Simulated assay, not measured.
Amino acid sequence: MTAYFEEFISKYKKILETELATAIDKLEAPLTLKDAMAYSLKAGGKRIRPLLLFAAIDAFGEKPETGLQTAIALEMVHTYSLIHDDLPSMDDDDLRRGKPTNHKVFGEAMAILAGDGLLTYSFQLIANDPYLDSDKKIRLLHLLSKSAGPEGMVGGQVADIQAENRNLKIADLEYIHNHKTGRLLTFSVMAGAIIGGATELELTLLEKFSGHLGLAFQISDDILDVEGDEGIIGKPIGSDNGKLKCTYPSLLSLEGAKTHLSSHIEEAKHCLAQTNLKTDLLENLTELVAGRDR
């Protein structure tokens, strides 16, 4: 990774963390609700989705800061999904990023409401963004609602639940992850492209790029569940197998999953090369996904 890329990550993660806290602080809402929302937002994480958004804007020669409100909204939607995913009625997880999950700290009812609050607040943030025109706001709101809703992440979550303790084909598994994980990663890149003023051809290529990246991200996650460091990833190793979930290593073997990961990474890079944009940051983030340890 280049010094420029490391500086980019450090700078925009710091900006994002500050603005996430500010967004919660200024809410006129019950203190316990704000505390529960802030708890999961402050749990850290890779912030890969906002960084992809900032990098996509940079590819068009625009200032990443123009996408700050959308990046905050995106991270709130992602965090809401994690809170709900950890609930006893879903994956029933006790730890997230090495800390007790939201419902373990605030109770199940407050965790549900914290997730609801983060989801709905995200749309308010984009709608009130003073730096985007109405056309871009409408496009972003439409794309985010579709990416996070029944045609995207929620639909993927349903398919994931229904697939437990079943033998799946690779196409079934890719459907789940294209929706559950991939749609929000695709939004990250496409939102940056919309804010940056992309042409239709550029949007098409970046959508293909993000599709490959989304699957690579999930395959990497499945591999980490087999051979990751529990102290680094912040959850028990082998938790997917314990929940009878179908994964890439269980279908393809661990080595087969790694080959599949490399293939999607190469395809993602190929799509970027065709855009003729300044994609060095996006390329570095792609490498980060390929070699991540958490």
Rank of each mutant, 00 (worst) to 15 (best):
H78S: 00
L68G: 06
G61K: 08
Q124G: 01
G149Y: 00
R139G: 03
V105L: 13
G155R: 10
G67S: 06
A163K: 07
N128Y: 00
G115P: 08
E75L: 03
V154S: 05
P88W: 14
E151T: 12
F123K: 02
A73G: 04
F106G: 13
A73S: 10
L118T: 01
R97P: 13
P130M: 12
Y80F: 11
A148S: 15
G149N: 05
T120V: 08
H84R: 09
Y80S: 03
T70F: 05
R97A: 13
L95M: 09
S122T: 02
D86G: 13
E65Q: 08
Q162F: 12
K99D: 04
D91P: 14
L141Q: 08
T66I: 15
D116S: 02
I161Y: 11
L125E: 01
I138R: 14
K104T: 10
M110E: 14
E65S: 05
S147F: 03
I72Y: 04
T120L: 04
L82E: 04
A59N: 07
R166D: 07
E62F: 08
S134W: 08
T120W: 00
Q69W: 00
F123L: 04
S89L: 15
Y131M: 12
G98P: 11
V158D: 03
G67I: 06
L141D: 02
R166I: 05
A109Y: 15
A127N: 11
D129E: 06
D135K: 15
D93W: 03
V77T: 01
R96D: 10
H78F: 00
N102H: 09
A159I: 05
D94I: 14
A73E: 01
S147K: 04
D129C: 13
D91C: 15
I126E: 01
E151Q: 11
R96C: 10
N102K: 11
L132E: 12
V105H: 08
V158L: 11
P88N: 13
D133S: 10
M90D: 01
G61Q: 09
G155N: 09
E75I: 00
S89V: 15
T70R: 02
A71H: 04
D86T: 07
G98R: 07
M110Q: 14
E164N: 00
L118S: 02
L140E: 05
S145Q: 05
V105M: 09
I72C: 05
K146S: 15
P100K: 10
A114Q: 12
Q162L: 14
S81V: 01
G67P: 06
G67N: 05
G67A: 07
A159K: 12
K99W: 05
A114T: 12
L68P: 06
L118I: 00
M110F: 12
D86A: 09
I83A: 03
Y80P: 00
D116N: 11
D135Y: 12
L144T: 03
T70S: 15
N102V: 04
L95K: 09
K104V: 07
L143W: 06
S145F: 07
T79F: 04
G152F: 02
H78N: 04
R139A: 13
L68C: 07
D92C: 14
S134D: 15
K137F: 09
G61N: 10
I161Q: 13
D86E: 13
T101K: 08
E108Y: 12
G155Y: 10
D94N: 15
L141N: 09
N102T: 14
D92P: 09
Q69N: 10
S89C: 15
